[in-house]
Simulated assay, not measured.
Amino acid sequence: MVIGATGQIGRVAVGALATDGWEVTAVSRGGGRDASWPDGVRTARADRADDSALAAAIGDGCDVLVDMVAYGPEHARQLTNLAGRVGSAVVVSSVSVYEDDKGRNFDTQEQPDGFPEYPVPLPEDQRTVAPAETSYSTRKAGLERELLAAADELPTTLLRAGAIHGPHCRTPRELYFVKRNLDGRRRRVLAYGGESRFHPASVHNIAELVRLAARKPGARALNAVDPDAPTVAEIAVAIDAVMGVETESVLVDGPAPAETVGDTPWSVPHPVVCDMTAAERELGYRAVARYAETLPDTIAWIERQLAGRDWREAYPKMFQNYGDLFDYAAEDAWLRA
């Protein structure tokens, strides 16, 4: 059973599990189905916030419960309350649960010298933030802690995803370069010399980890990222190549020179690059997709979403999270100066 089946990762994971021989029930608020799913996939309508609706969807039980949309400790308790009817679980978490050895994490990044400086590559035994109700990261940490503590009742594999990419994303980082190319912008400003690395995670690689974890239940937290971690400058060039354009990168040492100039969704002062050794060892994981190979589908999806619409209408959550990513007047003024 897959909760959040019609979301970005869920669509691919349902298909991967069904192809692997599982009888899959795809649960979502709308009860819809994806055209790519095999005919045998069943659908069910349920809001995961509604305990009784979710319990009814599970019915007599399932061997594996895959949860794409669990965000806090209350969702952990919701799952453990179903332990008698569920064999094991696979739950998507986030690399944002990590903090560095000085206590810096994603929640402190706006403070002076507040961005975390993780080991490269970042292993799963790196310390994590304290659970709390204060942020996405602390709630994910609370989710993880409760599920791992309940391992005897419900063995759960937690997948700490990086910068997720692929079609159906509500906050596609690739939009930053795709829209610039569509708008005919042939110069771009990149902070930190274009060397920032924020490890991407393809929906196809996450789905492969889901498939493998379903076959091999256990109590564990594993990183979930691509085999490569390109720099932001390399990402920009790869997107240009798919779109058939040439763009000059203006590289800036250090942080963005102005609030809306050069600060991409990947721009970070220290690399966030994760280690996948544990997944390879414990699950026999091998990546099924590389970042550049998946870009054509991602870019085509973004272009369809943008067609005839203001980007803020097409991607309201992107605007909410990042603000004005396309302040061309500010960019031009800085470039002239």
Rank of each mutant, 00 (worst) to 15 (best):
G84M: 04
V2Q: 05
M1H: 04
R309F: 12
M1L: 09
P123R: 09
D152F: 02
N81E: 13
D20M: 07
T134A: 13
Y98G: 07
E280F: 00
A76D: 10
A307L: 14
T171I: 15
D226P: 02
T43L: 03
V129S: 04
V272M: 13
S93E: 10
G10S: 03
D60T: 15
N81D: 12
M243K: 00
M1N: 04
T156F: 02
L148R: 09
A289N: 08
A258M: 00
L122P: 03
P172L: 12
P116L: 08
G32V: 10
A213Y: 01
A5W: 01
R170E: 15
F106R: 08
A57K: 09
A18E: 10
G254V: 06
I58E: 02
D324F: 03
C274M: 13
S135W: 06
V66Y: 01
G59W: 02
R197M: 05
C274H: 00
P200C: 10
Q320D: 13
G7Q: 14
W22Y: 10
R215C: 05
P296I: 14
Q109N: 13
V2A: 02
L158V: 14
N81I: 00
R215E: 14
R48Q: 01
R187L: 07
S52N: 07
T171C: 04
R188I: 13
A330D: 07
A233Q: 05
R104Y: 01
V268F: 05
K317C: 04
R188W: 03
Y136Q: 10
P271D: 15
T298W: 06
T157S: 15
P200R: 11
H168L: 10
S88H: 07
R211S: 13
G142T: 08
A89C: 12
G7K: 13
V250C: 09
A221W: 00
E246D: 14
D107F: 05
N205T: 04
G262W: 00
S94T: 14
F198I: 01
T298H: 05
A83R: 04
R197I: 02
D67V: 07
A150G: 15
P131Y: 00
R45Y: 03
R127W: 00
W301R: 13
V120T: 15
R220S: 13
A5D: 05
Q78D: 12
L190C: 00
F319M: 09
T19I: 06
V250Q: 04
D240P: 02
A26P: 01
